[in-house]
Design a binder for these strands. Structure first.
Lengths: 237, 237
DNA sequence: TTCTTCAAAATGTGATCACTTTTTGATCCC
DNA sequence: GGGATCAAAAAGTGATCACATTTTGAAGAA
């Protein structure tokens, strides 16, 4: 029996005009993405409400939403927790992410303007800076910005919400796994994608994007890291 | 200015041990899928609560969940409604559905046993029966069962929730469009898929599935039907 | 008439409470 | 000692209320 820690929940700054509901959602989402809530740990309404100093109502809606996005899992006992990761599930999420994002990129390609490419180059530069500074948090966040900004070139975007859901499910594992990695170095695969964009070459774009995603994710999904993750998760179960 | 109709919400039979929350969710989901709630029509908490004879609480959570699944849309004014469909968005949803389901099928393929194929054949037969009876509702539902049962062959399934979300978004349009169609006949493409499954042939499976989806959906997405749909939606806006 | 103003009505949001289900853990029995 | 029992505690669920925001529509001015 392990005495459960008092639920580490960093309080994100509350934006103007933001409802309590939205704020709680962002706090919880960030905590889950950062791997601050260990898988298997029960996330109770009252705990979150107390940690954030709000009533149960907005917490309930935020938990419900994150469950729908599969960032959290509602068990039969009605308990809510961060879902456990397995090697097979991790593989499926990665393959799904590749399929989804390659599709999104291909659909967006015809709408990518030179201006948007310039913006992508700018984001890429900021990734390099964050990388040099060793700021993994920023690298991950900016990398997501890069992909998001690419896919959103399409004016009638419907893929992005699904992609966000996958990111959310992979997030906690990536973060925890990375924290075990001593030497972290992300190869810059974005330049190849940018070249494909300039040439309006769908196939090259798919290849570059798949390489980028595999590089950023798959080398993390080695057996040893997965093992380290499962062990760290096991500490709290 | 159109006087809004009193929100047609069929009351689905409540299952045993089901929370009010879940029941309300199923009722709303069914109503949206069936196209009973016209796009643009504001769905207010109090209206739904009154129509279903429950308090506001479970309705709020159900609405929130359906919004997360993009079956409903939360506007800036905090109003909730069924999102409008456009030709471009419809096309994107169809292409996404094909990409997603082909991927899901391919991942599931190695796990498809002869027993599962037999079960799929059985579902297919029931589809034929419903088709002969002219029961479009049943055909649509059973067709979803067929696809769901195929993809769920994979023991570590992560695609299905995303597929369900796409079905939800396409649902109301398909139903409304079908109701405008006089001669409805769904070509049975499932047999080709079943053959591919028996042969464990990934490429043939992809081809059969894409054909099946395009057959079932794309012929509905003709310009005239889309126009009919937009007009019918316009009646209530 | 047409636009503006503003108060009433409608609606969403958040807090609180009562009730039900689940979990916990101490006690009892074997 | 080990397992069953059951009451207390904890957690989820649903109802209700007060308050904030938005919408509506009537009254008044240009």
């Amino acid at each position: 029996m392990v005495s459960s820690s008092p639920l580490n929940l960093p309080l994100i700054e509350r934006e103007l005009k933001e409802t309590t509901n939205q704020w709680v959602y962002r706090c919880l989402r960030h905590a889950v993405m950062t791997g601050l809530v260990p898988p298997g740990r029960a996330v109770t309404i009252r705990d979150v409400a107390a940690a954030l100093g709000v009533s149960a109502m907005p917490v309930r809606e935020a938990l419900r939403r994150l469950s729908t996005e599969h960032a959290l899992e509602v068990q039969d006992n009605r308990r809510i927790m961060v879902p456990q990761m397995t090697a097979s599930k991790f593989r499926e999420l990665c393959e799904l992410r590749i399929a989804l994002e390659c599709h999104a990129a291909e659909r967006a390609l015809p709408y990518v303007t030179p201006q948007r490419i310039d913006e992508l180059v700018a984001i890429d530069r900021r990734i390099d800076l964050a990388n040099d500074a060793g700021d993994r948090e920023a690298v991950t966040s900016l990398n997501q910005d890069f992909h998001r900004y690419l896919y959103q070139a399409h004016p009638n975007q419907v893929v992005m919400p699904l992609v966000e859901s996958i990111w959310l499910q992979l997030g906690p594992f990536i973060r925890l796994a990375l924290s075990k990695l001593k030497d972290f170095y992300q190869v810059d695969r974005h330049s190849e994608a940018l070249t494909a964009l300039r040439r309006q070459d769908p196939l090259a774009l798919r290849i570059a994007l798949e390489a980028d995603i595999r590089d950023g994710i798959t080398h993390v999904g080695t057996n040893e890291l997965l093992k380290a993750y499962v062990e760290s998760a096991g500490q709290h179960s």
